[in-house]
Design a protein around this nucleic acid. Structure first.
Lengths: 202, 202
DNA sequence: GTTGTTAGGATACGACTGTATCCATTCCGG
DNA sequence: CCGGAATGGATACAGTCGTATCCTAACAAC
């Protein structure tokens, strides 16, 4: 199969192989040769479709962001019939927590990338996009809910959202390290949503 | 200086050099030779006082835990005159958040270790000690406060504590990545403490 | 059919890794 | 004062890393 290769598809396969390694053995275990082996191709192929290791890493982070985005939208669509402000928050925060094997693997990889980004400006630039978008989106929703009179007027929407996102991230960490179950984490999230929106509808 | 060397002191210096590298350039930048250079000694010295790189890494994690423990006790002592249950929580959670340059560096290193521990069982074993101790300690305090009638009797102490610790960890992440200032993070913590204990005394 | 571009196999380079070894100091105890 | 242990300098080893190069197939267009 020498001519006519779908480059985007090839790159997608390699990126997925990279994320598989990063989520199970950590980002420090990711090497060009390991990716090649994981994807079942030669080292040359990895070099051929990505100019750099850096480009490969950035591709992995972009893909992780896209997956998270997909999960949020999927959850929002699943609860579309009851799209209250609380429902939106439950969907987004519930999509951040690892809730099945794949999302747990992705959370592992995300955590690895987050840590790497603390000392790698190039990754940081790619990585802040999604968290900022989430915060702005939720803040806008909460502000709207407040203006509609659905929540206490003397709460600061951005502060509330920042707290909830930080809580979800911290809970994700504790779920990944097996300190807490997914159910326990969800319970804590729900508890805080109750405090903000009032008790959930049946 | 051939005979009579204080081994513990030597190991402490090397461990500090290790943490300086881990907190500024990440754990993946930590190598035997880099530690030697940072500490101003030869590679042989690093080998001589630590049998392994693994032993060195574990020493770094232990030291980080000790520092955190010291910070908590220091804050508790500083607020010893007003050691209300809320004061204890404010001290512990305030010690988790990065509040000065050194604690920020330590938080960076802690984050790096946390991530490494997700794929390295040996580090995980060392690393869970402190978080578990903190959770148990705070849960005991909150249970006592509840029995004394200081907080709402239908709250679950362990759930509350788990939420607060997760919140503090998540806020730490956002402070490290410059998404939020220390002041903003502290404000969010205080806000949640108000919800739990009632408004703070003047 | 020839030509030229695309796709990848094979191999090599220099840098860096953790670890091991050899050897020269320096000092304590006898 | 002298033998032996403690300390550490210098160097080497076998791997692995990212990257570069060389060369050969395979197909499209002419």
């Amino acid at each position: 199969m020498p001519r006519q290769v779908d480059h985007d598809e090839r790159r997608r396969q390699l990126t997925e192989a990279l994320l598989r390694i990063a989520s199970t053995r950590g980002l420090q275990a990711v090497s060009m040769r390991e990716i090649a082996a994981e994807a079942g191709v030669s080292l040359r192929v990895v070099q051929y479709y990505f100019t750099n290791k850096q480009a490969l890493l950035e591709s992995g982070l972009t893909e992780l962001g896209a997956r998270m985005d997909r999960r949020v939208k999927q959850r929002a669509a699943a609860a579309a019939d009851e799209l209250t402000p609380r429902g939106v928050f439950a969907a987004v925060l519930g999509a951040i927590l690892p809730f099945d094997e794949q999302s747990e693997l992705d959370s592992m990889a995300w955590t690895a990338y987050y840590t790497a980004a603390l000392t790698d400006p190039a990754l940081a630039a790619v990585g802040v996009t999604l968290p900022n978008a989430l915060e702005n989106f939720l803040t806008a929703r909460l502000t709207a809910a407040q203006q509609a009179g659905d929540i206490d007027p003397d709460r600061d929407p951005r502060t509330e959202v920042a707290g909830l996102l930080a809580l979800a991230n911290g809970l994700t960490s504790s779920v990944l390290s097996r300190q807490r179950s997914h159910a326990a984490a969800t319970e804590i999230i729900d508890y805080h949503l109750d405090r903000l929106f009032g008790p959930a509808a049946a």
